[in-house]
Amino acid sequence: MSDSIFETLHIINKTSSHTALYADCFNTLLPGDAIVLIESGVFSACGQQANDLLKLQVPLYALVIDIQARGIADSINSQVSCIDDDTFVSLACQYKKSISWF
C-alpha cells in the first residue's frame, strides 16, 4: 500500500482569483501529479478556469460535497472527476505526498 505509483497531490481550496497561489501550484506540477479542488477551489472546475487547469495535463478532481454546497453541479466541466470524501482519502493514500495550497 505504501508503494505509491503517483507523486504529489496538490490540494487547492481557493478560487482562481488567487493568481499567485495558482501560479505557484502550476509551477510545481510534474507528470504523475494531480490536483484536487476543495472548498472554494471547486469554482475552478467550471468555465475557463477548468479549461486552463485541464491544459496542465494532470488528473483534475473536485469534491462533490463542495460543488453541491455552491450550487454549481450543472456547470462542472465534464472532464473533471467529481469525488466524494472517501475517494479524497484514497487519493491522499495513492499519492506519495500532498501539498495544500491555501
Binding site: 504529489t8 509551477n27 510545481t28 510534474l30 505526498k97 500532498s98 501539498i99 495544500s100
Partner: peptide, 13 residues
Amino acid sequence: MATLIRQFDTVIN
C-alpha cells in the same frame, strides 16, 4: 523547483 519538490517526503505550505 518542480524537480526539487519531488525529492521530499513531506511538504508543509
